[in-house]
Design a protein around this nucleic acid. Sequence first.
DNA 1: AATAAGATTTAGACTAGGCTAAATATTGTT
DNA 2: AACAATATTTAGCCTAGTCTAAATCTTATT
Lengths: 219, 219
Amino acid sequence: MFSLSEENYLKAIFHLERKYAGGVSTNALAEEMETKASSVTDMVKKLSDKDLVKYRKYQGVQLSEQGKRTAIEVIRKHRLWEVFLVEKLNFSWDEVHDIAEQLEHIKSEKLTDELDKFLGHPKRDPHGDPIPDAEGNFRISNKMLLADLEEGQSGICVGVKDSSTEFLRYLDKNEITLGKAIKIVQREEYDESLLIKINDKDLRISKTISKNLFIKPND
Amino acid sequence: MFSLSEENYLKAIFHLERKYAGGVSTNALAEEMETKASSVTDMVKKLSDKDLVKYRKYQGVQLSEQGKRTAIEVIRKHRLWEVFLVEKLNFSWDEVHDIAEQLEHIKSEKLTDELDKFLGHPKRDPHGDPIPDAEGNFRISNKMLLADLEEGQSGICVGVKDSSTEFLRYLDKNEITLGKAIKIVQREEYDESLLIKINDKDLRISKTISKNLFIKPND
DNA sequence: AATAAGATTTAGACTAGGCTAAATATTGTT
DNA sequence: AACAATATTTAGCCTAGTCTAAATCTTATT
């Protein structure tokens, strides 16, 4: 079993490997963990001793197979608990992150699997992020940023890139929720804002918004 | 907010105060916490600095009002999660303790209250122990040990004193579950065993068993 | 190729929580 | 009242995880 801190490092490395496939730098990890580079170096050595990461001084860090498996297990638990909080306990999608950060460290395989079953094996968490199955497989779907769609294209809103309270509240206010159909009516090249049709209404959204909304394009 | 270790100490002191009302001794607490007396002394000083306990050297320790409130909150969470695990996730009553020990430290008042609501405000956990309400009030009911009932008396099985896997499995095997009616048919004074009627069958149980089963006597 | 800037690691210190061994206080028994 | 047994506390050390400051490595620029 791994400590809370070890699990959080593994999770952070997992997320950063998307951006830095060749190895996650100490500084990037320090920023993600909201700690100092020296602390990261210490912890990364410990993780390396346990064969959870591959680490070469000054060259950054990568997850080992076991490290990756552990990180995915933590992410699986995080997202399942988020579904539980929203679906069963009346939380809204902007309230669940901090609580799931605690719940994701509860150690019991049976608990995770029974929770998954109880929730009906959900495929995505309340923010549209995919939930890995018990074997650690994500079903990845072709999603794009709304900002990258062409004029005239349409699709389904499937996730958010920014999960901050502020952004989620903005979406709530404008009745933009996961599963909704969205069509790009017009692109304004000057400020990169978009005119979209959603809920049968036209809505103008800024680049800031469209860069943080994932869409599964039709066809 | 208090640390995991602090919460566990408060909980242990709370439980021991039932037996040692005049102050819980360092050694008793050390045994309960499965640690050394010297470690207990250190921690008790810290709790005292935070006004969670009243402590006088060599004289034992007692919970302050705030300490008691905190302990009860932890116990409330523990028991609610046990209900959740048994009622919603198909756990049996002998499997839930260790997981609830982890879940009881999750910090979110809203989570606790919503969980309570979701479960229908249960009054007792799967072992028959009362669940305090959000204000920290236990509803105490008149329960007795089965061993202390007279021949001919009858009642309802409402709880267990020993929550060990072994004991709970024994009860399962003999179809003794909470809510069942039990009548004392005969007391054997020689070995203090009892002949009881339960499930319309006669069953002989030893003193060891009858000393660990709580009964709410009829009238 | 040299060097300055930036990134990373090392050294040494700190806190929480725990341990062992030694010192001290309390209690029970004569 | 004294002393032995037991309980408790103190002193000093340990590990995990963190920090600051100093040292060292890498990289970008000339």
